[in-house]
Simulated assay, not measured.
Amino acid sequence: MNKVLVLGGTRFFGKKLVEALLRQGADVTIATRGKTADSFGNAVKRITVDRTDSVAFESAIGSAEWDVVYDNICFTPQEAEEACAIFAGRVQRYILTSSLSVYEFGPERRSESDFNPYMYPIQLEEQSEHSYKEGKRCAEAVLLQKASFPVCTVRFPIVLGADDYTKRLHFHVEHVRQDKPIGIPYLEAKLSFISSDEAAEFLAWLKDNAVEGPVNACSTGELSLREIVTTVEEAVGQQAHVISDTSELDDGHKSPFGTADSWFMDTTKAQQHGFAFRNVTDWFVPLVRDIAAGRA
């Protein structure tokens, strides 16, 4: 499958996905709003469109057909429903970037069956009424219940990398270095993570592997908030100022990872299909060290 459309592909793991597809020899088209410059030159084709404008989106797609469509920017059931209509008869496979957010917090490792999008009620209210969690749940439900083409929904946890534009890990390094308070309600909470490199690698691998339905994708092993803080302390050479009661703490000092309970996934399905995930500490520790040293 070599003719590929990537909805969103100019930054973070979307950019790395395009680079991986090009290395595989794919014929890649990227569709973005054109607000972020890319470095792909003549290696890719481009469609400039705001996918939230359904009329403009359908017009921009035209009658083109693709073997695979990657959708990294679908956040609502409305956008998912529009995709079902626009790409009907024009795509052999559709891969949606979804999220760990579809699952509830808890001490147990979450498997795909813990949220069943095939049975989830489809809600098409206005976008403003949907949280990120609900938007992803409903987007999965719409695509997997309504699409006339095969769909895979990839549930990623927190994605980290030197290229993370949200600077979530940088936040912790800088707060420790500057002795600023970090609000973390529960230090023993265990979380799943994946690097931007591995996220892109997994998505590119899916192009030629017929995985359907929801699939979890995260690095092997979990990290507790305590382990994260300890790793940052060791890299910075300074003790963190952690505050567990965040009720009166300014939002700018609350950890982006500060969940009230554990939140991690089981990747048996992906592994049974043949994908081998890296151990989370193999890339997480070097990444923290690079950030602390100013190399990332």
Rank of each mutant, 00 (worst) to 15 (best):
G183A: 03
A43Q: 15
D290V: 01
V242N: 06
F202N: 03
V159L: 14
F12N: 02
D282C: 04
N116K: 10
L7W: 03
G62R: 12
S63V: 13
F202L: 11
D163C: 03
L96D: 08
D164A: 05
E82M: 13
R51A: 11
S195C: 08
T230R: 12
S101G: 13
Y120G: 10
D163P: 01
P157N: 06
E140H: 07
V211E: 00
M1A: 15
R137C: 08
F264S: 08
L223M: 09
I47M: 15
L143C: 04
A20M: 07
S54T: 13
V285C: 04
F40G: 09
S54G: 05
Q178L: 12
C152R: 01
E108W: 09
F156Q: 04
I184Q: 05
A64S: 13
G89Q: 04
P185W: 06
A20Y: 06
T36L: 05
Y94F: 14
R90L: 09
C74K: 02
N2A: 11
F75R: 07
R137S: 06
E81I: 10
G221P: 01
R109D: 14
K15Y: 12
Y132P: 08
S39I: 10
V242F: 01
S111N: 15
A85M: 10
A147W: 00
S192A: 09
V91A: 07
Y118M: 11
L206Q: 01
V102F: 05
V18W: 09
V211K: 00
L17D: 10
V6W: 02
G183F: 01
D290K: 06
H253D: 15
G9W: 04
T32C: 12
A162W: 03
V102R: 03
T153W: 01
T97R: 07
